[in-house]
Simulated assay, not measured.
Amino acid sequence: MDIQEIKSRFEEHDMRCEEMHPLFMTPLTTLYGRLSEIILDDHHFETVEALGITEEERFQLDSRDDLEELLYAKKLDGFLACFAKPIVKPIGDSGSHSCSWGYYRTTWLYADSISELSQKAIKWAEEVFEKDMAK
């Protein structure tokens, strides 16, 4: 999937990437900043899940140094990103819908390449669209 196709699919699904961390080139100062915050924070279990870090491993992380060691041990050197999509509201039984960026949901995903990450994000967007439309 090339960049133009990714862009087109993101537009088609009314979605955006809110935050991205290329782990293979993230400097330690960043790892110690925002990235460690979103991984070590108790409210970001979705981020930990996206990275394949178990709950047990997460609770054993006592410091940012431990996080760095775990990312290295798991060979997590791809891309961690947060994607967003407006919540869709069906309009009657016609299959039409409305949405606004005033109400949206996010998810954290991890992949080894931008193409794989984009495919995961598009799949997520399609799944949440179907769930919203089924309500």
Rank of each mutant, 00 (worst) to 15 (best):
T106P: 00
Y104V: 00
A73D: 13
S8Q: 13
T54H: 08
K135M: 08
E57F: 07
M1K: 08
M133I: 07
A50F: 03
M133D: 08
L61D: 04
E46D: 15
V88N: 04
T107S: 12
M15F: 06
F24R: 12
E130Y: 07
M25S: 13
S113Y: 07
E68K: 08
A73Y: 07
E130P: 02
L71R: 05
D41I: 00
L40I: 10
E37N: 12
R16T: 09
A84T: 08
I39W: 06
P27Q: 08
E12K: 09
L80Y: 03
L51Y: 02
E49W: 01
E11T: 07
Q119T: 11
Q4P: 00
E11R: 06
D112H: 04
Q60L: 15
C99H: 14
E130A: 13
Y110H: 10
L76A: 01
T29F: 11
D62R: 12
K85G: 01
L80A: 10
R105W: 03
V88F: 11
Y103E: 11
D112A: 11
S113V: 11
S63H: 07
W108S: 04
E126R: 10
R58H: 15
D112S: 09
L51P: 06
G78I: 09
Y103I: 06
R34K: 05
G52I: 01
D2F: 08
D14Q: 10
D41N: 15
K131T: 14
M15Q: 01
L71W: 01
A125V: 09
K85S: 14
W124L: 09
K135Q: 13
S98E: 13
I6Y: 05
R16E: 07
K135R: 13
R9P: 00
Y110R: 05
F45G: 12
F24T: 02
K7P: 00
K75Y: 12
M15Y: 04
K123L: 11
Y104L: 00
A134Y: 06
F10K: 07
V88L: 12
T47D: 05
L76M: 10
S94C: 02
D2N: 15
D2R: 12
E55L: 13
E69S: 09
P86E: 10
I39H: 07
L76N: 00
L117G: 06
